[in-house]
Amino acid sequence: MKMDLAIEVENLVKIYGKGGSGIKALDGISMKIPKASTYGLFGPNGSGKTTLISILVGLILPTSGNAKVLGFDVVKESVEIRRRVGLLPEGFGFYDHMTALENLVFLATLDKIPSDQRKKRALETLEMVGLKDRANDKVSTFSRGMRQRLGIAQALLKDPELLIFDEPTVGIDPEGAAEFRNLVKSMNKEGKTILMSTHLLYEVGMVCTHAAVIRGGKLLVQGSVEELYQSVREAKGYRYELRVKSGIDMLLQEIRSISDVIEIKQNENHVTVLSRREIWGELLPLVSKPQFKDAVESLKPIEPSWDEIYRFYQEGG
């Protein structure tokens, strides 16, 4: 079945500078971002995330390779892309001497929003990011977090099909970051595609349906979050956590007897089980047996952490 794609990148290469001294920022990246997904692009600083995003919206040209955003070619049809994409660039700024509303109305003009709707739309987006009561304040009076929220508002102005956020939660306080993640989730529910770059692993896990890991200009892995978990589980083993009371020796013995269980670790009332394969179907009936029912408070699978996923793929998958 053909996937409906928002972004399709094929063997993208970007070299800054000319000749032998050129720096390869992107080294043959290929990726597919499905429509209506929240796609997390994770990588350390300098891994090529911003370069990739800049190419996708036509701010810079690729050295070689192809990329299409919403069906438009990034080299030949970049204006059409920017007409449909809301971008929150990294290190952006606003006209400090103007108010938040004036900034957005000016940008709405360039977004080709009809003149009678500009102010209304600007106020709507300010409300979405919680800045409506500061609409008539000069941006120079805004904190860094407020500027970041205003940045999100300007990306939402044209009600775009695709939103691209480059390091969106940098400088925002934890409360603001949580609000942002809720906003992303609600926009995703509306059917918008969101591509979000970050160097914070936990953000990917919190909001993304799909993710890719980029390092040194190369894509280490991509897929749905579940696919990524699965790959790590298959390679590193499945983990389960039991919260137990006392007198569980019999239970542990029975768990050990399940084939492919590699390791059982007990730390006071926490038991961690590691197995080579999925054993949920065997563990659950086991702990539900009458003789163990009272000894086990809870049982849950433990997903690999994003640190583990990153390390796993960094080491070659």
Binding site: V57, L59, V79, E80, R82, R83, L87, P89, E90, G91, F92, G93, F94, Y95, D96, L107, L110, D111, K112, G151, Q154
Partner: peptide, 14 residues
């Protein structure tokens, strides 16, 4: 320097 160029160039303009 202000980063406003990035915001301007992210609009559908040349």
């Amino acid at each position: 320097e202000r980063g406003t160029l990035r915001i301007l160039l992210s609009r559908p303009i040349y």
